[in-house]
């Protein structure tokens, strides 16, 4: 990474999906490599089933924790509709990493708004330079916990190389951030997430 280069990753989803921890893991992976890291997160009221966004920026000279429009090298969408809502942040040729599982908002269940995750996924397919779609149900079942989705997404991010972070950088971050008894399960999720990229 050159001196002035800043890599930016936007994580978006629904409150409770673990986007905050994912952004911390990515930042920790960068720090383990000796890079500076900044993040900015949605905490508080919006976490109750609302839309949440985390910004992660790594590099030597990061000015602001917030990513301007069109400057994200990667968008990690924990939910298809949330990824579509934040597509304006993606730079031309940027990478999309998406979870295929939709979370229907109450407004849609009540018929006040329409929303189909499937349509958003289709629409997003050609919006970046490349697009990785992850089926979270498979990984969650294999790992035995719905809480591993965020780590799987981080694994996919490493496999794309879009932030200049490798799988072993992420593994190092997991060793720093995770409780020992949860480490093995998350290492598995990390690898399964990465495999979704290589399998394409």
């Amino acid at each position: 990474m050159s001196e002035n280069e800043v890599k930016s990753c936007l994580l978006c989803g629904v409150g409770g999906q673990g986007t905050v921890l994912a952004s911390r893991i990515i930042a920790a992976a960068a720090m383990a490599k000796g890079l500076h890291a900044r993040t900015a997160e949605t905490i508080g009221m919006a976490q109750r089933g609302g839309s949440v966004v985390s910004h992660v920026r790594i590099g030597e000279t990061i000015a602001s924790p917030m990513i301007p429009w069109g400057r994200a090298d990667v968008i990690i969408g924990f939910e298809p509709g949330e990824a579509a809502a934040n597509i304006k942040y993606l730079r031309e040729g940027g990478v999309l990493i998406l979870s295929s599982r939709q979370v229907k908002p109450v407004t849609a269940a009540l018929g006040q708004s329409g929303y189909e995750g499937e349509e958003c996924l289709k629409w997003l397919a050609d919006k970046g330079g490349s697009c990785v779609v992850i089926d979270p149900d498979k990984i969650i079942e294999a790992c035995g916990s719905p809480k591993v989705l965020n780590v799987a997404m981080a694994g996919a991010l490493a496999a794309t190389g879009a932030m200049g972070l490798s799988i072993s950088d992420m593994e190092e971050a997991l060793r720093i951030r995770m409780k020992p008894k949860l480490l093995e399960m998350n290492m598995k999720a990390l690898r399964m997430g990465a495999e979704c990229v290589t399998e394409r």
């Binding site: 009221m45 509709g81 949330e82």
Partner: peptide
């Protein structure tokens, strides 16, 4: 123009 309808997600009780 071809953007699909996006989810409207105000915060709600868990």
């Amino acid at each position: 123009e071809d953007a699909p309808e996006l989810p409207v997600r105000p915060p709600v009780l868990c």
